[in-house]
């Protein structure tokens, strides 16, 4: 076990843990934001640079600080390491720059985008971003294309985190899409308008931190904050069948996987559950999902039903209703 201190909070972690995972063990504000790292995908991380932290002391043996900010998702901890995340103004400043770079080509079409309200980039720019853009050049623009019959790709919004490529690589037998070209012209694409047909391909929608890959069956149907996310499950031969059903009244508007507090899926779900089962009779409802109070989705969202009581008119006492 190695002893690490992150933002003055000590924690003991196993050998080989990254700084980000050590911070997640503490939880709360010390966890650096991550746009490309995904704990369930091997090899992910190290691309977006939003999780940069300052290492004030490399280890107990070598107390010198690391010369540059390091990406916490891909740097393993050492014994006696002292890490600064929010306590270092340098990190906050760097993150501001990173957000500016991520938004450099990102179209600010949040009013149109289906991801708005549950978008990691929106949260990040709200937390660290500047109000203004420093550039006046045109943003790069790509046509909107369909990859597969249920997935829409808005390449304009992509931040090239590669998560969807890892999902296709590690979850399915044959990857049909990838990143073409290099540098600032690189783009996610299928090879010559091929369609992605694997039965787990819908998970690329959930792992996408922005609105680049969106559900065509939910396209422009509603805004996420008008819907109520419910835990639901069904018997499914291909996947666990545990999903989040986004309800509007008694209607199911869309099905997604269940995301944990870091926006990562608990289990990957199959396309049949995601795209085809949209009747409320298909699902067994378990109850409302937990939504952070700070989220826009939490408006009018109640996590438990209060037991109804009757006030006795004369004695003023309360009775539990049957």
């Amino acid at each position: 076990m190695l002893k690490v201190t992150i933002d003055n909070i000590p924690v003991e972690v196993e050998d080989g843990t990254t700084i980000l995972n050590a911070a997640r063990k503490i939880g709360g504000n010390v966890v650096p934001p991550a746009m490309c790292y995904y704990s369930k995908l091997k090899g992910s991380g190290g691309k977006c640079r939003t999780c940069l932290v300052r290492v004030a002391q490399s280890s107990a043996k070598d107390p010198r600080p690391m010369p540059k900010l390091v990406a916490s998702c891909s740097t393993p901890v050492q014994d006696g390491m002292v890490v600064q995340n929010l306590t270092s103004p340098e990190v906050i400043e760097a993150r501001k720059g990173i957000v500016e770079f991520l938004l450099l080509n990102h179209p600010l079409d949040c009013p149109v985008c289906d991801q708005a309200g549950e978008c990691d980039l929106q949260d990040l720019s709200f937390g660290y971003g500047m109000e203004e853009t420093a550039t006046e050049e045109e943003r790069r623009e790509y046509p909107v294309i369909d990859i597969g019959e249920n997935i829409k790709l808005h390449m304009n919004r992509c931040i090239l985190c590669y998560r969807c490529v890892y999902v296709a690589d590690q979850l399915t037998d044959q990857r049909l899409h990838g990143v073409l070209y290099r540098g600032d012209v690189s783009e996610i694409s299928t090879f010559i308008q091929n369609s992605v047909t694997n039965e787990f391909s819908g998970n690329v929608i959930d792992v996408c931190p922005v609105g680049a890959l969106t559900d065509k069956t939910f396209r422009f149907k509603s805004r996420v904050w008008f819907l109520k996310p419910m835990n639901a499950h069904r018997e499914c031969g291909k996947c666990s069948g545990k999903v989040a059903a986004w309800m509007f009244g008694s209607e199911i508007y869309r099905i997604t996987g269940r995301k944990d507090q870091y926006g990562e899926l608990e289990t990957f779900i199959c396309n049949e559950c995601r795209f085809e089962k949209k009747e409320s009779t298909d699902w067994v409802m378990e109850g409302p999902r937990h939504i952070k109070r700070q989220s826009v989705i939490s408006s009018n969202h109640y996590e438990e039903m209060k037991e109804q009581s009757i006030i006795h008119p004369i004695e003023g006492t309360m009775e539990k209703k049957e």
């Binding site: 009013p111 149109v112 805004r223 904050w225």
Partner: peptide
């Protein structure tokens, strides 16, 4: 109007 829903929320 793009029906973003911000007025409604």
């Amino acid at each position: 109007c793009t029906a973003c829903g911000l007025c409604a929320v």
